[in-house]
Design a protein around this nucleic acid. Structure first.
Lengths: 376, 376
DNA sequence: TTGTAGGCGTTATCAA
DNA sequence: TTGATAACGCCTACAA
């Protein structure tokens, strides 16, 4: 039967026929060079070359072995945004580096444009991957459901609260607490908070109580908790701390948002920003308003992106790249267990290496730079 | 036979058995909903849900259909570098956006660490992709050979000279010519050139005649040609134009390299830099030396990365993102032809849409900003 | 509208 | 050291 393929692909069989051996032997020539004589292998490779055989077909190999040799990285963000965010890029960088070392392919999948209409990208179901790294994807996203349905190992980064799925991330709450504490220790009593988005609805405005109770991303929730906790300990009520939510993590949004914090009778002397990009944007506005940093207003960021150092911004350092490498490492561990189990035919303790892991061990560092130091 | 898989995967067959239909019908339920009654489809989907069937296995589907539904993007650079280069990121962004729209997966493959030891990444041969986009990969690289061996459609970006492979890129020579011409028209007669790497050997030094004759990346060669052509037309001999080669496209390298151009008896009044990052770095050094821009030294960049505007740097605007979308578009066209040919069983003119394409039509724009304007 | 049969290209098992 | 045979899970032309 002719089938749909007119010009048939060169296959193992063709090579086998040419050399006069079985296709198994040809397969071995590629996979287990030790299983056949060097001379024969030589002949086979030569014949393959001559026939234009390009090596085992990935799909067929994958079907036969059950492994794709690739893993997927799922973004929560639009790609256009993701590729401008230094923090995301660093994580991705770590992931890519690890994949490179492990000779594993990396498939990029963006949930971005699908978050709003709540439909998951088809890629998610189709991608030839052995497992997924979910980067900061809201747990209620369809993407997460689809990824789980794939029934492949998962690891989440910067987004816990997925049962039985290992998690890589820092102690966001503790870090935020330390940021606020640092400013408190410098004598500040009037604070303003610039919060990242609590939902995917493009909201720009005060963080209302209702929104505060329904924060989609736990990293945001944790940071907020950390700030609030420190302030409460100092006798400052959360209601008295103006908090502005911005929909996009960008300098521009920070610049706009901070205006609403400064523009009030009791002007804050200290700003807690949930990211460095936001903080850096805020600094521009602060200066544009004729205020001095840190004499008039102190500011504290989060992430320690490269630009933070140039801006002399105090911040929390995250080991972004290591988050990526850790995620790959965890995923690999899960995969090994899985394949091991299948090949040996026994059930291992499914908790081994699979349970929730935090990997928070003293990762974040506090970097107090000039701009956070209150002089008076 | 038990095979290696102990806990067998749920397959079409299982669902079919459960519902009491053939597996073809189940397949149709997923692929051609119109081919069966809505009620039956409903029953099938319910059964699938119940049994934990996660949908057609990607590998099996790929083997049966001959398509992976994914394409590969091959970097010439180390990933750590690639993810810091605004120009590359923009291209990648365009690629990713197109893939998203086409519901196609995107596999990232870095040739970086393999360029030196001249071995291609195994991923290249294993990746489940229908075609490759080669981004600025030297044509003599093993990667290119491997990619060609895969016998899948290819598109190259910023790196022509691959026979029969479509090419996406701007008119680098013409653009460089215009950059140089702009400075000439302003009255400059003493130039210095900051060249990007001509080989992957980490060389930092004057661009020798020998190196000039063996430039690995044609974009570099073209830009150099454009500069030289314009200068020659103005009666300036190439030998009289100090040219410094730097191994990495970074601000730091630009800052270091320009020192060697300025540090000579006849100090150049105009610097031609092959990238904005290099130019921006150079500007720092120029100012650090107490020289004014553009009064003492004018400078011209290439790329128009976002930072160029802030730095007030005159430059050549490249449509980075569109390069990415164009590459995907071309690749898609090739794939359609290929599949079409196979499925219809006739040979189309293989030149149709396959030959070299330049897509240069008036893409680059010249952006002359303040810093290139000579006042005297 | 549904089912049958064959094929996609490879790897794994086990016997020779 | 080599080879026959059976999966792997799905798709599709064609027959019913």
């Amino acid at each position: 039967m002719t089938r749909q393929h007119d010009r048939r692909k060169v296959t193992l069989k063709d090579v086998a026929a040419q050399v006069g051996v079985s296709h198994t032997t040809v397969s071995n020539a590629y996979i287990r060079p030790g299983q056949l004589s060097a001379a024969l292998r030589e002949r086979i490779l030569a014949a393959a070359q001559e026939l234009g055989y390009t090596g085992p077909d990935p799909a067929a190999k994958q079907l036969a072995t059950g492994r794709a040799g690739a893993l997927g990285f799922l973004f929560s963000e639009d790609l256009p945004y993701a590729f401008t965010d230094p923090a995301i890029l660093s994580v991705l960088n770590g992931v890519a580096r690890s994949c490179d070392e492990l000779e594993t392919d990396l498939a990029l999948i963006s949930a971005g444009s699908n978050l709003r209409n709540r439909t998951a990208p088809v890629s998610l179901g189709n991608a030839a991957v052995d497992g997924y790294i979910l980067y900061s994807v809201a747990p209620d996203s369809r993407c997460v459901m689809m990824a789980q349905q794939r029934n492949v190992p998962l690891v989440v980064v910067d987004q816990p609260h997925l049962n039985g799925v290992p998690y890589v991330g820092i102690d966001d709450r503790g870090s935020a607490y330390r940021a606020a504490k640092t400013l408190l220790d410098l004598g500040h009593r009037h604070f303003g908070i610039l919060s990242l988005k609590t939902a995917h609805d493009g909201y720009f405005g005060p963080l209302t109580a209702k929104r505060r109770a329904n924060i989609a991303h736990s990293t945001i929730a944790m940071r907020l908790e950390g700030y609030v906790l420190a302030l409460q300990e100092a006798g400052i009520a959360p209601e008295d701390v103006p908090t502005w939510e911005i929909p996009i993590n960008s300098e521009d949004m920070g610049a706009q948002g901070v205006r609403h914090l400064l523009n009030r009778a009791q002007r804050p002397t200290a700003i807690l920003a949930m990211s460095d990009r936001v903080a850096i944007g805020a600094m521009q506005t602060i200066r544009a308003l004729g205020l001095n940093i840190p004499q008039d207003v102190s500011i504290f960021g989060f992430d320690d992106i490269p630009a933070a150092e140039g801006a002399d911004l105090s911040t929390i350092r995250q080991p972004h790249e290591r988050k990526g490498t850790e995620a790959v490492r965890l995923l690999r561990a899960l995969l090994e267990i899985r394949y091991d189990r299948f090949s040996r035919g026994f059930e291992r303790d499914s908790k081994a290496g699979c349970g929730r892991q935090h990997n928070e061990a003293a990762w974040p560092e506090l970097h107090a730079r000039r701009n956070a130091i209150r002089l008076i």
